[in-house]
Design a protein around this nucleic acid. Structure first.
Lengths: 321, 321
DNA sequence: TACAGCGATTTGAACGTTCAAACCATTAGA
DNA sequence: TCTAATGGTTTGAACGTTCAAATCGCTGTA
């Protein structure tokens, strides 16, 4: 009912203390005597005081903002929106907000980093769609800016030097393959993406591992449903009795090729809609871990080793397998 | 290579003018003599100066932030992520950034308004999922805060008193119905949502209008595919030879009921995946209009009448109709 | 008695910007 | 020639917070 802005000075006056004491109650409560602390807390409550982030940021250089690129949905069969929702929620719990930007490629994304840092000074970035030769991470690392990637730094020496959170694609496809083996299948094909895609190679490796004999029962596609269908026909002709797919999109195509068990990846709404068995990423968990990694980086004394978190996907069994 | 922060004072020094003149070049260029203006512009360029939004906001109370709630995807067959992407892009072009929040219901969303206003002072809010008796809009309006809704203020007197952008659902279903009429169908059923849903009633009305004889060929559902299928069976039994659906989700169900032409609404990825003919909302356009409405509100002398924008959806014809 | 040490609190300054008012030439009007 | 008006620019203050340093009161020790 009173949208007047109440400042730290108002609180101080009400609690009969100085500005700084109020600030301390908020930021370093242990510096303040129990009794005073309570008095200030009550004044904060009564006045409905909320810290003004702009002013705080002026002084501390911290904005309590996390920046993330919102991706252009292509066929819409992706998983980003769920991750983003989780990120927003976890961030809020940790006292951060999420700010969005768009970019067409790495170069323009880096330009946007620069822009954002000048104008809004986000405390950290969350990067998605990591790939071989990702220049974004080195740009950020050079400047010692805080960030985490959702996705491993593919093609990096060993484990990479920056913090990341990812879902173990290989474990997922291995589980899918074992599921099919358990159902009696012996000739299980894999429909993948072009070699060199970190995520694609990872997912392929789980299938190969579970199968041991790698056979020649695999095809690479551009990820479209059309190529998925063609690949599935070839594999079935070559003797495959079940198919593990690198994505729901190619799995959707594969389903058109014949009545063969098919397992997709990502558990997109499309999978749910058509009854496609698929691997589900623990997205809100992943988002929460990203926030955790960042708050450690920003608030605690930074850990000496960057955090690396690998989560397991789970198989959602539906009609197709 | 020099991530040092450069301030307006640095620019001023380099261009041999005062701080205020630099500020004027940025904000009210016409106050500054041509020659000086150029000199300052060059200094800005050379130093890579970017305005510090926190400092600006301290003085002006403007954050250049637009806040929007990110919705929890239920069956994932929604349209929000595309709208959000468009909003982020249009906002960036207008010099604004998008900041996210979550909320479970109207009450908690209002609490979040309060929070956000205290901490980040977003210049405006973009509300989605408007509904009957929406208390959020009155809360914002009472406080004279800038906002626009993507969705009409259902159940309001006439047109409502606040600015909104929406897609003409009735026009969409009317077009769908005409499409089916053109294909020779005469008994066209409608599968909808419960009465009282603004969006649902709107979409229903287009079908009714195009058909004139409203017949009894309609069923209401909770929006699930399961109820969609049941409804479709009943309608087909009652003589319907084609179906217009309030959403892709019920349309998906309806398709299971038999080989009858079906048209959905929203053109979700699921529709594309299964070849469902559907109505596509011009989402990035809608987002751009939202931004436009807000910038008018924030920057120009506010228009006396609130902007109301109604856009036409387009029919995407696929296999199912 | 003096003083060091400590815990609790206050004071002054600063972050980078823009507003409001002041200032300075120059030109126009009487 | 003086005054008023005008265009262009500068100056000082302020936004709300936190840092760094100063202050105050008390306790314990020499």
């Amino acid at each position: 009912m009173m949208p007047e802005k109440v400042t730290i000075a108002d609180v101080a006056r009400r609690a009969s203390v100085s500005r700084q004491t109020v600030s301390n109650v908020l930021n370093s409560p242990d510096l303040v005597r129990e009794e005073t602390r309570e008095r200030v807390r009550q004044a904060v409550e009564e006045l409905g005081y909320r810290v003004n982030q702009a002013a705080r940021r002026m002084r501390t250089g911290r904005s309590r903002l996390l920046a993330i690129r919102i991706e252009q949905t292509q066929d819409g069969m992706n998983v980003f929106d769920r991750f983003l929702h989780g990120l927003t929620e976890s961030a809020a719990q940790a006292g951060y907000r999420v700010i969005l930007y768009t970019a067409d490629d790495d170069r323009s994304e880096i330009a946007t980093f620069d822009d954002l840092l000048g104008a809004y000074e986000p405390d950290a970035f969350v990067l998605t769609s990591t790939h071989h030769g990702d220049v974004r991470t080195s740009w950020l690392a050079e400047r010692e800016l805080a960030f985490v990637t959702f996705g491993r730094p593919w093609g990096m020496p060993e484990g990479g030097v920056h913090p990341w959170v990812d879902v173990d694609g290989a474990a997922g496809t291995a589980a899918a393959t074992r599921h099919l083996l358990g159902a009696g299948h012996r000739r299980i094909g894999f429909i993948g993406w072009p070699e060199g895609s970190g995520v694609g190679d990872d997912r392929r490796s789980g299938w190969a591992r579970a199968l041991e004999d790698t056979g020649a029962l695999e095809r690479r596609t551009d990820g479209s449903a059309a190529e998925g269908e063609a690949a599935a026909r070839e594999l079935i002709a070559a003797g495959a009795t079940a198919l593990v797919c690198v994505s729901d999109s190619v799995a959707l195509g594969a389903l058109q090729a014949g009545p063969v068990p098919v397992i997709g990846f990502d558990d997109t709404p499309v999978a749910a809609a058509i009854g496609l068995t698929s691997l589900s990423q623990p997205l809100s968990d992943a988002a929460a871990r990203c926030v955790r990694v960042l708050t450690r980086l920003l608030e605690d004394d930074s850990p000496d080793k960057p955090d690396h978190v690998l989560l397991e996907p789970s198989l959602v069994i539906r009609r197709t397998a």
